[in-house]
């Protein structure tokens, strides 16, 4: 097991190096550069040229690549061209917001989706199953910005239950008396609508995966044996069927969790959520190479590592798998 994990980690390093290179090439191949695209008639060509030199973008591409590799190996990802700040700082300012919203959303939709999927499979063909499956399919196919706007319109504008997008309210944050819990509650309050949207869009896929996995499991003989043993239905479902049905779902949840750190530009935009997803899209569109490269590296690393974790977890959940 230890040997396996070490081997996998070594693989991850190799893959990361490849990704590093691919990212570099990809971003340099993209048309435009961060200076030229500043379409500002105030900027003279001489000034543009000077800025390009100052940013080191006039260096031959191979030299830029070597510098980039050297920096990456020392964990130095440079300065964002757009923000003029270390990319680590830019990412660190936005990443917790994204994790807060998206990881919570994945966990919530996975938890609910899985437990409802379990129930739906158990009551296959009954009204509960039908209702849940249809709800899952319908919400899963909804267009996120549309749903988001609808929720904001109803619950924030018409009913005035929730704030119109954003992450915190300035009143609370500017109030010197507001303590940690008041502020935390304020963030939670702002999270309700985006979380609901993400939950509605995503729980369906977990529900459907769990349902079908559970249905497969229910055909197995050990379920029949469990029933013959005189176990209660609840025990059969939770102690025998579910642990087996979990297995395929674990992969799906693991990867979703990993990908949740890249957030979603669309969700963050419609809910004015200051997350990393928008930064990422912005960095790419602005040719902000250092920021874009570092963000993608971060995501790749997390996804690759979570793959290893999922595999290890798999071995833990399924005794048949041993490394």
């Amino acid at each position: 097991m230890r040997k396996y994990v070490l081997k996998r980690l070594a693989q991850v390093m190799v893959i990361l190096f490849c990704i590093l290179t691919i990212l570099f090439v990809l971003f340099r191949l993209a048309p435009g550069d961060p200076v030229t695209r500043m379409v500002d008639p105030e900027m003279t060509p001489e000034e543009s040229q000077h800025l390009i030199e100052q940013l080191g973008l006039d260096q031959p591409i191979w030299k830029q690549y070597l510098i980039y590799l050297k920096n990456c190996s020392t964990g130095e990802f440079g300065y964002s061209i757009h923000y003029g700040e270390p990319v680590a700082k830019v990412i660190w300012e936005k990443l917790p917001n994204t994790i807060l919203l998206f990881t919570t959303a994945v966990l919530l939709s996975a938890m609910v989706g899985i437990s409802w999927g379990k129930i739906a499979a158990w009551r296959k063909g009954k009204a509960t199953d039908l209702g849940m499956t249809i709800a899952a399919l319908v919400t899963h196919t909804l267009f996120l910005p549309w749903l988001a706007l609808l929720l904001v319109w109803i619950f924030a504008y018409q009913l005035d239950w929730f704030p119109i997008t954003g992450m915190v309210s300035d009143e609370v944050w500017l109030d010197p008396d507001a303590g940690f819990f008041t502020k935390a509650a304020d963030v939670l309050y702002h999270m309700v609508l985006p979380l609901t949207t993400l939950f509605l869009i995503h729980f369906g896929s977990y529900l459907l995966v769990m349902r079908s996995s559970m249905l497969d499991t229910l055909k197995e003989d050990y379920i029949l044996l469990a029933r013959a043993k005189g176990l209660t239905e609840r025990d059969i479902r939770n102690k025998h069927a579910a642990p087996n049905a979990w297995l395929p779902v674990v992969t799906s949840v693991g990867l979703s969790l990993a990908f949740s750190i890249n957030g979603g530009a669309l969700t963050e935009t419609v809910f004015s959520w200051p997350g990393i997803g928008r930064e990422l899209v912005f960095a790419v569109s602005q040719n902000d190479y250092p920021l874009a490269q570092a963000s993608f590296m971060l995501i790749s690393t997390v996804v690759l590592l979570s793959n290893v974790v999922v595999d290890v977890l798999y071995a833990y959940l399924d005794p048949r798998i041993r490394y």
Binding site: V152, A156, Y157, D160, I164, T165, V270, F271, S272, P274
Partner: peptide
């Protein structure tokens, strides 16, 4: 800061 003009216009009306 608003992510979209939609949200900003709603906020103005609200």
């Amino acid at each position: 800061v608003f992510g979209t003009a939609d949200a900003a216009v709603l906020a103005l009306r609200k």
